[in-house]
Amino acid sequence: MSGQTIAREFTAQMSVRAGRWRLYVALLNTTEPWPEHRFGRSVPTFTDRTNALSVLGFEPVPGAEWAWTEDSENPDNPASPVVLIAAIRVRARSGVSA
């Protein structure tokens, strides 16, 4: 495999806070700042999310799908507002270092 690099994979996550959606790539085990993109108030479409990842220099790993998780703002309070978090495995686009 001389001359080839293995694509590093990361997790991109999207969440909403104060009515605004935010997409970021968690660059764990690096000293790099986490790339981030902010959306408006409407839920970003699949295309919106893919375009934002591209602008940040990433692409979904082939076969990866967005997974949605429900959390709460205050885990100790069952009446706490719901927080939706989406995640997908991504890799740096060819020619872009993460």
Rank of each mutant, 00 (worst) to 15 (best):
V90A: 05
V90E: 05
M1I: 12
W68L: 10
G3Y: 09
L56N: 01
R22Y: 01
R8H: 09
Q4H: 12
R41P: 01
T50A: 08
L84K: 12
R89A: 07
E73I: 11
S97K: 09
G3Q: 05
R20Q: 04
V96E: 13
T50K: 15
V25S: 03
V25M: 03
S54N: 09
S2M: 15
R91K: 05
A92W: 07
R22V: 03
S15N: 03
R17W: 01
W68Q: 08
L23A: 02
W68I: 15
R89H: 04
Y24S: 10
E32T: 12
E70G: 15
R8M: 05
S94L: 13
F39C: 03
I88Y: 03
A67P: 11
M14R: 01
V25C: 02
Q4V: 08
E9Y: 02
S15R: 08
F46T: 15
P60I: 06
F10S: 00
A64V: 06
N29W: 08
V90C: 07
D71A: 13
R93E: 00
R8T: 06
N74Y: 09
G63C: 09
H37Y: 08
P81G: 11
P62S: 12
S54Y: 02
P44Q: 04
G19T: 00
R8E: 15
L53M: 11
V61G: 04
P60M: 08
P44R: 15
A98P: 01
S42R: 12
S97L: 13
F46Y: 14
E36M: 14
W66S: 07
N77E: 11
R22L: 04
V96P: 02
T45Q: 07
Q13A: 02
Y24W: 07
